[in-house]
Computed example of a mutant assay.
Amino acid sequence: MRARVETVRIDGLPVRLHTAAPAGRVHDDLAPTVILVHGIGMSHRSFARSQRALAAEHRTVSVDLPGFGGLPAAGRRLGMDELGDLVVRAVRERGAGDLVLVGQSMGTQVVVEAARQHPDAVTAVVLVSPVVAAGRRLTVLQAVDLGRDGFVEGFRMNAVLVTDYLRSVRQYVRELRPMLRYRLEDTIAELRQPVLVVRGSEDPIARHDWSVRVAAAARRGTFAELPGPHHVQERQPVAFARLAADFLRMQTLEGLR
């Protein structure tokens, strides 16, 4: 399955969209559209396998944020509120209707902000390996946790990590402070949408107690755990896709009651 790739500029900032859908039906009115947002230093490649699994049933769009995935650096720091707004505006400019937002690592902060700012566009939120845990909002602590995660990630994901980081180092440095300062546990309480929090059982970054706390802070939060590391969506792409699909079906059934 080959994705359609296009770059959209919002307020002068580039956002690259990788769209894949069942049988290539990227223009159909499939609803909702599942939007995949990567973490700091990463790109759409961190969702490559899980996007293929999700695209068997849903129209999906994997995003490259400004300064990441080979896109030019923004030249300034972008807050999570600005990144969240950029994501929604970019995908809606290309025709997407109702959105389900899936964020991984720093992407969880981005999609929570997107859902907070655009409640009428976003129907549900999935947070994979949420960051940054309270009590670990220091660069040195995050570096230690990231190093530990490298020992449990597979060869492919470690290769993606290294090459994506090298491509995005300028924007990475700028986004580190906003990511560390963002209090996900506070903002998520403002969301009206249902939220699924997914954690890998071997994840040293999004630890179990913290991830449960994030889910509990949501008005309509659910917690689930799969075997795997920080990028559990790639270690368990089919299981993750089934978990997300079951979550969406459950929300649809509740909406019909």
Rank of each mutant, 00 (worst) to 15 (best):
M1Y: 13
A3E: 12
A3T: 08
R4Q: 13
V5P: 01
R9I: 01
I10T: 04
L13I: 04
V15A: 00
H18W: 08
A21N: 05
A21D: 07
P22R: 05
H27Q: 12
H27I: 01
D29Y: 01
A31P: 00
A31K: 07
A31Y: 02
I35N: 00
L36I: 01
V37P: 00
G39E: 06
G41C: 07
G41K: 03
H44P: 00
F47S: 01
R49M: 11
R49F: 08
S50I: 08
S50V: 13
Q51S: 06
A56G: 12
V61G: 02
V63E: 04
G67V: 06
F68L: 13
G69M: 04
L71T: 03
P72H: 10
A73S: 15
A74L: 09
A74H: 07
G75R: 04
L78T: 12
G79V: 09
M80T: 03
G84M: 10
D85E: 11
V88E: 00
R89P: 01
E93A: 14
E93V: 03
R94D: 10
R94F: 05
G95H: 08
G95P: 03
A96E: 14
G97M: 02
L99I: 07
L101I: 08
G103L: 06
G103R: 01
G103V: 03
Q104D: 11
S105R: 01
M106P: 04
G107N: 03
T108G: 08
A114W: 04
Q117D: 12
Q117Y: 09
D120T: 14
A121V: 03
A121N: 10
V122L: 05
A124K: 04
A133M: 07
T139Q: 10
T139L: 14
L141W: 11
Q142T: 05
Q142F: 03
A143R: 14
D145W: 01
G147F: 07
R148I: 08
G150Q: 13
G150H: 09
G154E: 11
R156Q: 13
N158Q: 15
A159S: 14
A159H: 12
A159M: 14
V162Y: 05
D164L: 09
D164R: 02
Y165V: 07
Y165Q: 12
S168N: 10
R174Q: 14
E175C: 06
L176A: 11
P178M: 11
R183F: 03
R183V: 10
L184S: 02
T187V: 15
T187Q: 13
I188S: 03
I188R: 05
A189M: 08
A189E: 12
R192E: 14
Q193A: 15
Q193N: 04
V198K: 01
V198L: 14
G200P: 12
S201M: 11
A206Y: 00
R207A: 09
D209C: 00
V212H: 08
R213E: 15
R213M: 05
A215R: 07
A216S: 14
A217S: 15
A218W: 05
A218D: 10
A218S: 14
G221A: 11
F223N: 02
P229I: 07
P229Y: 05
V232G: 06
Q233L: 13
Q236F: 07
F240V: 02
R242P: 00
F247A: 04
R249H: 12
T252A: 15
L253Q: 12
E254M: 11
L256C: 10
